[in-house]
């Protein structure tokens, strides 16, 4: 093979690699988030609550991880178990990237959701999920910061009462910013794709 042929092949390889790089750059820059995007990102309000092991949990300590936050309660008959099941599936889809994502469940029913109750509840879905509670006053502040609605609804029957509550999922990026929110019913696959992108972007 003479020098000119080698030169042409080399040039072809260089051009090919350049094209791959350009396409990769274009596709990575053009990713469109499928959740409700918060732009510009705003620093997520920090909070300090108690986790299912009785330890103090601070949101600001989680920098470097993508956080998915959901507000619910353990006696919830519908939305909460569905959302936590979706969290479990998203975690499984993320595989090794799951280490960079924290799944958090914050109670809207602190009277019934004790540390032990929360621990038992989340471990049904995944023992690595973090369940948080606190004094009602502490939680009211967090609910307010995150625009969470919650109202006790008395029902007849052995189950006691229900709690109407916001069913939104909040995604906080690795820099501690509110980046995305998802209404209840958003397809799990879309949430997974967004979270995977947030992890890769981080």
């Amino acid at each position: 093979m003479n020098k000119s042929k080698l030169g042409i092949i080399g040039l072809g390889v260089v051009i090919g690699l350049l094209l791959v790089y350009i396409v990769w750059q274009l596709t990575s820059q053009n990713y469109t988030y499928q959740g409700s995007l918060i732009d510009p990102p705003v620093e997520a309000k920090d909070f300090e609550l108690t986790d299912q092991d009785g330890d103090i949990f601070r949101l600001s300590d989680q920098r470097g991880k993508v956080i998915l936050i959901f507000f619910g309660y353990t006696h919830c008959p519908d939305v909460c178990p569905v959302t936590l099941s979706e969290f479990k599936q998203i975690k499984s889809q993320l595989r090794e990237d799951a280490e960079k994502v924290e799944f958090i469940f914050i109670t809207v029913d602190p009277e019934r959701d004790t540390v032990d109750t929360l621990g038992d509840y989340v471990s049904i879905f995944d023992p690595d999920f973090i369940a948080l509670t606190g004094e009602r006053d502490e939680l009211i502040e967090v609910w307010s910061d995150y625009g969470v609605y919650q109202a006790r609804q008395e029902v007849t029957g052995a189950g006691g009462y229900l709690v109407d509550h916001t069913a939104r999922v909040y995604a906080v990026d690795m820099d501690g910013n509110w980046r995305l929110t998802y209404p209840f019913g958003m397809e799990r696959e879309k949430i997974y794709q967004d979270i995977r992108h947030l992890v890769q972007e981080g």
Binding site: T32, Q34, G35, S36, L37, I38, D39, P40, P41, V42, D145, Y146, G147, Y149, R168, Y170, W178, T181, P183, M186
Partner: peptide, 29 residues
Amino acid sequence: VSHQLGPIWVPPNSTGSLVMERANNYAYS
């Protein structure tokens, strides 16, 4: 303060956006 329009929640001094993907009639809080 933060506000919400159904599927969109917006913290103060920011913008929330969402692409409408399905034809339907929604009544949102």
